[in-house]
Design a binder for these strands. Structure first.
Lengths: 388, 388
DNA sequence: CTACTTTGTAAAGCGTCAAGCGTAAAAAGG
DNA sequence: CCTTTTTACGCTTGACGCTTTACAAAGTAG
């Protein structure tokens, strides 16, 4: 499914292309017979056989000798992509928690570690916690940093064009942190830092509520409101990495939208500011009048920005994710009503199915994409970790 | 530069791919020697020679026998892409005029015809005028409809996903018109109907103010305000063809923005409503106080929608086009100031260099793209007009 | 005219894939 | 247990397309 530029191609290149095509077919349906691969790629059986054997000697695939086959006829040898040849790491550095996911090249999650972090923690403390999470995730899975082929870290705030620094962020003291540089000492593989909303969108497209769509607006509803955009199947960063930051427009009341929930009258003293929103949602669900009004005001403000995104992009799907997506049952219907009122063509409005994990999963997916691009983008090199 | 999906490829496919690569190299630098092509494509000289000769016999290229060569060594035979093998038509159906451009496969304009149309004309009259423009454009260039390989028509209003009907439009009585069906009788080639703002964006990217950019927001400023979006080099229509219609949001005062100019106090009675805006711009340029204020109010309203687009997409360039782009000298600076105030990362703000022609040129480009996709998308068929 | 440079073209060699056919390995049926 | 059927394996042959090499052709520079 990947694309290669059409320049002059000679025979070795042709074989490389066909090898790639077999690798892809192998990854899509893990244990495949030669005949299946032949059918899927359009290549002849002998060709597939030779290539598959080459992949085995190169270390890209392993062969499963025929076990108990229930079918009639000679049981076929099966080839399998060696997903365990490399691993990738996706990390979500949030305000309250740090979540690391370790996965193999198939995207199968091997291990995950989640640590709680104080929202007020300074950058040094947060970085130390990040290191601890990564360290324990690797060691508990029995992996070393050299086994990792790509790392993606999700942070709040926009990430600039080089994918390096986040030039503004709500995390205290986080502006001056160069995460890439910080991790460069530990990993020699590619390191990507990306905005959390964008990665949330990627996660929902990969394994969440929008696997069927290619034009997606992902709304992150939480103490901070944001958006991630997928257009024609590809995550869009914008020229300077600031795509989706419609919340910066004052007419779009995203900055103040969560305040409707936090400042809702009737929240007990015992409920902290971080839990106020959850309390309001629960109260609204129970019929609490002021809470319902607060939720409605929140959705009304959310919808203005959402409408701006929808009118700009005309997406197929709008996914509501983020911390408040647990209360999507209260949000979705009024959000739909508002969008119906404001938009020309109504998109499909859905709740996130990944919840709080969407960002880390998106980070994982971006790391996998990075590996794909490096290893399969131009030619098929040996299965070793790419270097920066 | 075009992409092909990586499926299994055999030898004939390889040669097809290389033929394509040569065709492209040939189109980029028209009269090329075999050695040049060999260097550009990476193929060996004999291979290029064989393929080029094949292209000549197929009718895709012609050969120029060596003339007076100033260089040392044996003078080289030169191959040239036969741009005249086919032609495409781009038509802009505006409120006041219909403009048709006829070009060869290189995009070189062979002929153009412009007719004025009464803005109040009904659909029947407008369609008749469209037919007349196309008819005279073809006949004056000595072409018949069978010489045309693709037609694109620009209309105001959104165009739905199938590219067929425009489901709302400011042109009187235009809703019920099925332009594709109307033209299908005359042409057997692909016919595409598209929104004028989107095509304006394409035109500016192709030959206008944004040839260097791949992330472009095109603003159409005129009696109607609209936008076209190019992201990562590709014109984006949105899932339902309604991308860029941010003007439908009431908070974005695009609907009323031109009214600031039309209702400006001090416009003489003798100036009709269609010319009021032009008068106001001229007056503002002469220092007329009320006119300057009206222009500023116009730009302020324009900027809100522009900011929404910029914040959503974070483009590299914003191009100001449409009828008012003749007065870009008055618009650009205040527009920049407003965007600077509203946006996170400031894009490059430029005036259209194509003016009123950008839409028709964009239509031409879309028709050329259509031909490219049909003919060069998968394999290299004979040079004949593609059929729907 | 000769030396030199560059292009055009032919021949040889190699790598890749498709087609075809015999063989191997299992299950099903007698 | 043996035969038949079914499917996969693996080999050979042939065709195709590209590269390399070599050499003739067509110009310029001296």
């Amino acid at each position: 499914m990947t694309e290669v530029t059409t320049t002059g191609a000679d025979l070795p290149r042709l074989r490389e292309l066909n090898s790639l095509s077999i690798v892809r077919a192998l990854r899509d349906h893990p244990p495949s017979t030669v005949t299946e691969l032949s059918r899927r790629t359009g290549l002849s059986r002998p060709a597939v056989d030779v290539i598959a054997q080459g992949l085995v000697t190169d270390g890209w695939a392993r062969v499963l000798e025929p076990g108990s086959s229930s079918a009639v006829g000679r049981p076929a040898r099966r080839y399998q992509f060696r997903a365990g040849a490399g691993h990738v790491l996706g990390v979500d550095v949030g305000a309250h928690k740090i979540l690391a996911l370790l996965a193999d090249l198939d995207g199968t999650i091997v291990h995950s570690v989640r640590h709680a972090v104080d929202a007020q923690a300074g950058p040094a403390e947060r970085l130390a916690e990040l290191d601890a999470v990564i360290e324990s995730c690797l060691s508990q899975a029995g992996k070393s940093p050299t086994d990792i082929w790509a790392v993606t870290v999700a942070v709040t705030g926009a990430v600039d064009a080089s994918g390096r620094t986040s030039f503004f962020t709500p995390l205290p003291g986080w502006q001056s942190v160069d995460l890439t540089a910080h991790l460069a000492g530990r990993f020699s593989c590619p390191i990507v830092v990306e905005n959390d909303c964008k990665l949330g969108a990627l996660g929902e497209q990969w394994q969440g509520a929008a696997t069927d769509a290619v034009d997606i607006v992902y709304l992150q509803g939480g103490m901070r409101t944001g958006a991630g955009l997928i257009i024609d199947g590809v995550l869009r960063r914008g020229f300077g990495g600031a795509a989706g930051e419609i919340g910066a427009l004052k007419q779009v009341r995203w900055l103040d939208a969560p305040a409707h929930l936090q400042n809702c009258p009737g929240v007990p003293e015992t409920v902290g500011p971080d839990d106020a929103a959850a309390w309001v949602f629960n109260a609204a669900r129970d019929g609490h009048k002021a809470a319902r009004a607060a939720v409605n005001r929140y959705v009304k403000d959310l919808a203005v920005g959402a409408a701006a995104l929808v009118l700009t992009l005309d997406p197929q799907v709008v996914v509501f994710g983020g911390g408040f997506s647990r209360s999507a049952d209260l949000v979705l219907d009024p959000l739909r009503r508002e969008l119906e009122r404001l938009c020309l063509r109504m998109p499909d409005v859905r709740a996130s199915t990944l919840g709080a994990d969407s960002v880390a999963l998106g980070a994982l997916k971006l790391a996998l994409n990075e590996v794909d691009q490096r290893l399969f983008g131009g030619g098929l090199s040996a299965p070793v970790a790419p270097r920066r």
